[in-house]
């Protein structure tokens, strides 16, 4: 009986260690987003997703340059620019000011080469205002990125 218990306990510990190792860098994280609505298409054919006040997505860790299409679509309540703050893995990277609600802005941002043991980096956008009952932030178009050679 004692042997069975030890065997079960050992199996549980091994399973937990394996789960911990797997969850440190899970492959499915690439498909995880939060604070982003489903893809929509602008009449001219531009695909985009609405963010909420805070949006997250992942990029491969060997990306060295990222182009992020952004459009405010609605002005700020005070009439000023909509501010989008971007961070990567919890470190601030850049701020973007969207002055014209109708215009797409396509900033290209160099991603600092920081050593990481993970396959993906977490990119977060924080938007200075949201609009309406659907909590709409800004429109984000399809990302383009350049990976390390």
């Amino acid at each position: 009986m004692r042997r069975i218990r030890v065997a079960i306990l050992t199996a549980i510990l091994i399973a937990m260690a394996a789960a911990g190792w797997y969850l440190h860098d899970p492959p499915w994280i690439a498909g995880i987003t939060s604070g982003l609505r489903s893809w929509e298409e602008d009449p001219p054919g531009t695909r985009f997703r609405w963010t909420a006040g805070h949006a997250t997505f992942y990029i491969p860790s060997d990306v060295v340059e990222l182009t992020l299409p952004l459009r405010g679509a609605f002005p700020s309540p005070n009439g000023g620019a909509v501010l989008v703050r971007m961070s990567v893995d919890d470190r601030w990277l850049a701020d973007f000011e969207l002055h014209d609600p109708a215009a797409w802005v396509r900033p290209t941002i160099p991603i600092p080469d920081r050593p990481t043991s993970r396959r993906y980096r977490r990119v977060e956008l924080r938007i200075s205002r949201t609009v309406g009952q659907y909590n709409l932030g800004v429109q984000v178009g399809e990302l383009e990125f350049r990976r390390a050679q």
Partner: peptide, 15 residues
């Protein structure tokens, strides 16, 4: 803790 470990968004509303 698990969110930090997996590098998911630590915003209180992720997976």
């Amino acid at each position: 803790l698990l969110t930090r470990w997996s590098n998911l968004p630590p915003d209180g509303f992720s997976l």
